[in-house]
């Protein structure tokens, strides 16, 4: 067993947090660095920033975000969204991010994973997979890979794509259940365990978490190595400390908050 990581996820566009947040004790709830710093102090193990490059002419905003994070956040953070080349990855990693996550661009060109891994190591390449239940006979796991923010079906089987990504050099899989995302019905543990048990690299479960019990299910049933959550933390429904204390009570090893 690994020590399970709790990872708040911030959706950011043009340098601002876009998913609703409900913090009362922040000067500016829309500032991603301020939010991330708060999560750092509360005991988050990592931070993920996603979809921050909605348009390619906003690249400088991303680099600015990374620079500010490097100054204010003392836990690892990942940047995902719009990374299409080794050059994109280089600049983000140079400025202080630990990892970059790739999704659509990796499906279009899997070599991107190996190119970035060869340059900076497998540990910094997160393969983000958006998964949805599917009757497509090509998708033997029963789940299909979607790209373009979940708008386009690829015909790829989720488990096979995760294994391919690992072969190309992904150091971690960030697995989002599209069907559960935003529902608060809990992680899709069937999906998560399928991927987790067919790859050697860590799996981050994402999508659907709403209660404390969902967090422990993600580990015990989903076999996830890390748990990603957004709204339960943003809306103050649960704190990172509550989640970690709950997991510890259930015998799941985490870094105490």
């Amino acid at each position: 067993m690994t020590n399970v990581r709790i990872i708040p996820c911030l959706d950011v566009t043009d340098g601002r947090v876009v998913k609703g947040t409900n913090f009362v004790d922040l000067k500016d709830a829309g500032d991603p660095v301020e939010l991330a710093s708060k999560y750092d102090q509360e005991g988050a193990d990592e931070i993920v920033f996603l979809d921050i490059t909605a348009s390619s002419d906003r690249r400088e905003t991303v680099f600015e975000l990374v620079r500010r994070c490097a100054e204010e956040i003392f836990i690892p953070f990942t940047i995902g969204g719009g990374i299409r080349s080794v050059d994109d990855a280089r600049k983000i990693l140079r400025e202080g991010a630990e990892k970059i996550s790739v999704n659509t661009a990796a499906v279009q060109k899997p070599e991107l994973i190996s190119e970035i891994a060869a340059e900076f190591g497998t540990q910094c390449v997160v393969l983000a997979i958006d998964a949805k239940q599917s009757d497509n006979p090509e998708c033997r796991s029963g789940y299909e890979v979607y790209v373009h923010g979940g708008r386009t079906a690829t015909g790829l089987d989720v488990v096979e794509w995760a294994q391919t990504g690992e072969e190309y050099g992904a150091g971690e899989i960030l697995l989002t259940s599209m069907g559960r995302d935003g529902t608060k019905d809990g992680f899709d543990c069937k999906l998560t365990s399928k991927v987790s048990q067919s790859t050697k690299v860590p799996t981050i479960a994402s999508g659907g978490v709403g209660t404390l019990e969902h967090f422990s299910q993600g580990v015990l049933e989903g076999r996830a190595d890390a748990l990603l959550a957004a709204s339960v933390f943003h809306y103050g429904e649960l704190t990172i400390r509550e989640v970690k204390n709950y997991l510890i009570e259930r015998g799941i090893s985490v870094r105490p908050a």
Partner: peptide, 10 residues
């Protein structure tokens, strides 16, 4: 190792 890489707090 349970997973490679070790990517966690320890």
């Amino acid at each position: 190792a349970p997973r490679i890489p070790q990517m966690q707090w320890n």
